[in-house]
Amino acid sequence: MRIVLDRAKCTGIGICESLAPTVFEVDDRGELVVLAAEVPEGALDEVTEAVEGCPAMALRLEP
């Protein structure tokens, strides 16, 4: 599964990072960095939670 970020919607507050820190990290300027293009082995649950938990609906998963 590919992780897709819509930068136009992302507010950089990082709710996703608190749910899936292996994949999402906010940098010093408040920009979200997606650390993995694909969902890493064993991380699907937490990445799904982060995608569904994004209050800005800026994340989605694509097959």
Partner: peptide
Amino acid sequence: GQRHVMKYRRLIA
């Protein structure tokens, strides 16, 4: 502290 806050939010959870 944009880089910091969510790491602690996770620890709180």
